[in-house]
Nucleic acid binder design. Structure first.
Lengths: 248, 248
DNA sequence: ACAAAAGTGTTTTTTATACACCCATGC
DNA sequence: GCATGGGTGTATAAAAAACACTTTTGT
């Protein structure tokens, strides 16, 4: 984890042999079920040792000729069919003994996990259940004990998601092409919690920024006045790139 | 790098063998020369292939039994003697062919670099020049072509430093125990550039936050009114932890 | 006395926050 | 007609930005 303070230590392991690594990629894949206002994370049931029959983040070991990012996309492609997604690298967990396989026969081999963080559109995401495999969306509030240090990775990913939402337009990667301002607001509430902003202020702030265009199309969801559908305008957003834009 | 968009690709390298990795740790070590208002980065001259006689970020390969972070601290200890520092993980670069050694004899072995970001106190940092080794502080504005993808890593580290400075108290890890408000201001200017805030506003904002205590001690630097020395008060800062505190 | 650096205060503009209220629809 | 969600506006408070001014030193 970033931000801690160990002491400088120059023990004389100067002539220690180099470690050999297998490198795994684990994805923290989030989606938001706007209908039920739940933030979800994708978990898979492990089908081999170690941690057989434990839930875990979907992951894979990196193959020859494959980049880390390729591996992250491969996991996605194997578990889920999705059109739109946001993906970025999260953190690298690599202490010795984080994987029990390091203990056993294959002496000296270390397992390192490069984690990626993804956000997908819940409605369009289609899970791929290969034969016997368990795969499911879990509410982040109800994740069970996971394999390896995956609970820790998930916590870290959740923190990143909250930050991302505040200062970057990831939300639009995960909303439908056209959405109501309330859809957007619900997404923020679901991820960030109730107390971040009043709806009308949220609305005013976002519209003033000028990168949401009103399509004029109205949708009615049950009772109440029909809402306008808006569209994210990438060109209008361009000037805000890399600026400390604040959404909340 | 985070934030890009490749396409999902599920090529059938399903039966490809796993890659074997050596894992390197490379540190982007910054310091600020407040006397000359320069942001510096520590570079070392490589003494072996590949890229012999090129400048590079100080790095090492991870040894058996050593965690990533241990390796990062080991690099620090080998290159520099320093009391106070801030260190956190930056990013993991791991595409195939980023290291030319992957081409040659040792077929199949990949080199992956986990980069760390460090900030040290320039005045107290003592460089360790082992025998023939070149080691030097470079102004980030004048770094030469570096080995591997180290220029890219440096750019990424610089961006992180700027962000960190804006919303976290890293500056105090790198200033002397007692400092004038102008010292602090110069540090911000040096890292962030000229146009972020006027001195008196910067001053007022920071003092209002209440975690800088005036020691009463005055120092005179040439002409002009003597300045008060301030001290960072960690207890008074505690309530701001994890809050979206903004310094700039 | 005067320049230089430190430190204080004031004015203006912008942004955040908390609401009150009007609008259009389903039932 | 009234409950429901959509949408607009206003009044107050707080923060950011610009800049004028005072204080204390060295020379």
């Amino acid at each position: 984890m970033p931000g801690h303070n160990s002491k400088l230590s120059a023990r004389s392991l100067n002539q220690q042999p180099l470690a050999d690594f297998k490198v795994g990629v684990d994805n923290v894949i989030f989606s938001v079920d706007t209908a039920q206002n739940r933030l979800l994370v994708l978990l898979v049931m492990r089908q081999q040792e170690p941690f057989i029959n434990s839930w875990s983040l979907p992951g894979t070991l990196v193959r020859q000729g494959e980049s880390l990012e390729d591996a992250a996309y491969r996991i996605m492609a194997e578990k889920i069919r999705v059109e739109n997604l946001y993906l970025e690298q999260l953190y690298t967990f690599g202490g010795p003994l984080r994987d029990p396989r390091e203990d056993s026969t294959s002496f000296g081999v270390r397992y390192l996990s490069v984690s990626y963080f993804a956000l997908v559109r819940f409605e369009e995401a289609e899970l791929i259940a290969d034969k016997v495999a368990g795969i499911a969306w879990y509410s982040v509030k109800q994740v069970p004990q996971l394999a390896f240090d995956h609970n820790e990775i998930l916590t870290y990913g959740h923190r990143r998601l909250k930050n991302k939402l505040e200062y970057s337009p990831v939300a639009f990667d995960v909303l439908p092409e056209m959405f109501t301002l309330n859809d957007l607001y619900q997404l923020y509430i679901t991820v960030l919690g109730e107390n971040f902003s009043d709806y009308s202020n949220f609305r005013a702030r976002l519209l003033k920024l000028g990168f949401l265009s009103d399509t004029g199309i109205k949708v009615s969801r049950g009772a109440g006045r029909p809402a306008s559908l808006y569209r994210f305008n990438a060109e209008a957003f361009a000037p805000f790139k890399d600026k400390p834009l604040v959404f909340i």
